[in-house]
């Protein structure tokens, strides 16, 4: 088998990215990541309780600030409550929190094993992430939201909105994964990249609209947020869920998400290429 990626120096994008795609393998990886996420029951319950606690806390703030019947920046009180429970339910799929597991393998050196496999390294981590996040979405996020639905009357979308939301979440997962991958990869260059990861997390939490809907931002800051990829992770799916985006606006949202997913993925793979060059030339 010939690999177009293996040039004389053998490091151009590395065959890692140009392997014939073995979908079954990535499915098997995702399945294991899903199972792995289900191993720790105490963490599972604690996660839901923590999310629900913070969602409730944030809701009480909104309820105190809102006057009955008013609407702020297009958000009714119920919109604000729905938005809060939704984002809190989505937290474990990357809405306001980056996974650190790749970074840990880089620091421990275990990444060497993963780099010397006949697979796409990016595909491997993407499958792992998708498997784990599917678990979190289906068994963690949904339960969290159910609590919001039962006790705070958080909104349930119509069927078409729900379907559009599923597509938006899929794209959001790709964007948030690529972003997290890039941030984790800095561990190849920095001996301790926890600082970078913390800042990256804050930027994500803020500009994705997790902390506060982008609609509440001052206009100039909102413009900044709309130029960044993070809205694709939380704000756009949430606005679809709320029914604020309809018709062509939904398609525009998909396009923005897909565009960022593609750009960040290419950036991440490019960066992986440089990381590999560093590893193979300098020995990590």
């Amino acid at each position: 088998m010939e690999f177009p990626g293996s040039t004389a120096t053998g490091i151009s994008l590395l065959s890692a990215v140009r392997m014939p795609i073995n979908l079954r393998l990535y499915y098997e990886i995702a399945i294991r990541a899903f199972r792995r996420a289900s191993v720790y029951r105490a963490a599972y319950v604690a996660g839901i309780l923590t999310n629900a606690f913070f969602a409730a806390l944030r809701c009480f703030v909104y309820l105190a600030v809102y006057h009955a019947g008013t609407s702020v920046a297009g958000f009714s009180p119920n919109d604000a409550i729905t938005y809060t429970w939704l984002t809190q339910a989505l937290i474990s799929i990357g809405a306001g929190w980056l996974a650190w597991d790749l970074m840990q393998t880089i620091r421990s050196g275990d990444v060497i094993t993963d780099l010397s496999r006949p697979w796409s390294f990016y595909g491997y981590w993407l499958s792992r992430s998708l498997g784990e996040r599917c678990f979190n979405l289906l068994l963690r996020g949904s339960v969290t939201y159910l609590i919001g639905f039962l006790f705070f009357a958080a909104r349930l979308p119509h069927l078409t909105e729900a379907l559009a939301f599923v597509v938006a979440i899929g794209l959001a997962l790709l964007v948030s994964f690529a972003y997290g991958f890039i941030v984790n990869l800095t561990a190849f260059w920095l001996i301790d990249n926890t600082g970078v990861m913390l800042i990256a997390n804050i930027v994500l939490t803020f500009f994705s609209g997790f902390l506060l809907p982008l609609a509440f931002f001052p206009p100039w800051l909102r413009q900044v947020a709309l130029l960044l990829p993070f809205q694709a992770i939380t704000s756009l799916p949430a606005e679809i869920w709320l029914g604020h985006l309809t018709g062509a606006a939904v398609w525009r949202a998909f396009a923005v998400q897909a565009g960022w997913a593609l750009v960040l993925m290419l950036l991440a793979i490019r960066m992986l290429h440089f990381a590999m060059r560093k590893v193979v030339i300098q020995g990590g």
């Binding site: 690999f3 293996s6 004389a8 053998g10 065959s15 890692a16 094993t113 010397s116 006949p118």
Partner: peptide, 16 residues
């Protein structure tokens, strides 16, 4: 090995 990495690793086993 470093040029045909993927084909190479299919045929070796490594334990650290």
């Amino acid at each position: 090995p470093y040029q045909e990495r993927v084909e190479h690793v299919r045929r070796i086993g490594v334990v650290f």
